[in-house]
Design a protein around this nucleic acid. Structure first.
Lengths: 116, 116
DNA sequence: CAGTATCCGTTGCGATACTG
DNA sequence: CAGTATCGCAACGGATACTG
């Protein structure tokens, strides 16, 4: 019930770090985009409106380091780099997609409830 | 399939704003804490390790404005202010709790998969 | 195509002090 | 107790330019 090791409520625990990565500004959108299938860098850029190259690259590197995304390079010229969800990433994205669906479908209610 | 009005993938849509609020550094933790029942300001501060008064107040105000959290003041001295989830907030938190549970329980796998 | 590097303004956010 | 106000630094993150 109270704070336990690994609990998100305690700082300096790994789970807090992962939570911050996953809920960062662009990570949610990247993961959800990849949920529909592997995508290349430029396709992701086009899909996610407003993301800069820098932030997309940074987000992808973080997600790859956390084991949620797999980066695959085809040895062609020009090189084709494809990103896809790992098994762990797919499990994660189930939860995120549920969140996105909720926000999207309930947006009218949210905006109706909004004050000031 | 492609970008639609209200879609999170397009910027300048309300859903993107709400998503940013909800996935902000402290909002996830506040909502999850309130999921167990109403809490007072100072109790939330103690529960959520590392949050400053400023950020807790700011987060609560945003969540209240979005209609996810309800603020109730008991007319006593000293005043007792209690925060609780609205119906909409409770629905939202279902998804967030799922996310937190996933991260917490799968943390070993995540850290095992982590590179560099 | 798929990035990296640099610059640099904006914002996040902790610390501190003060209020009803 | 339950906040608000102000300060100030560090990190976030967008724009631009450059690379293999």
């Amino acid at each position: 019930m109270s704070t336990q090791p690994g609990d998100v409520f305690s700082s300096h625990c790994g789970s807090r770090t992962v939570l911050d990565h996953v809920t960062s500004k662009w990570a949610v959108l990247v993961l959800s985009a990849l949920d529909r299938g592997p995508m290349r860098f430029s396709a992701l850029r086009r899909r996610i409106d407003g993301v800069s190259e820098k932030m997309l690259a940074q987000t992808l590197r973080t997600l790859e380091a956390d084991g949620f995304v797999v980066r695959e390079v085809a040895p062609t010229t020009p090189p084709q780099v494809t990103y896809r969800l790992s098994w762990l990433g797919a499990e994660l994205t189930v939860h995120l997609s549920g969140l996105l669906d909720f926000i999207t479908t309930r947006l009218p209610d949210i905006q109706a409830a909004r004050r000031a």
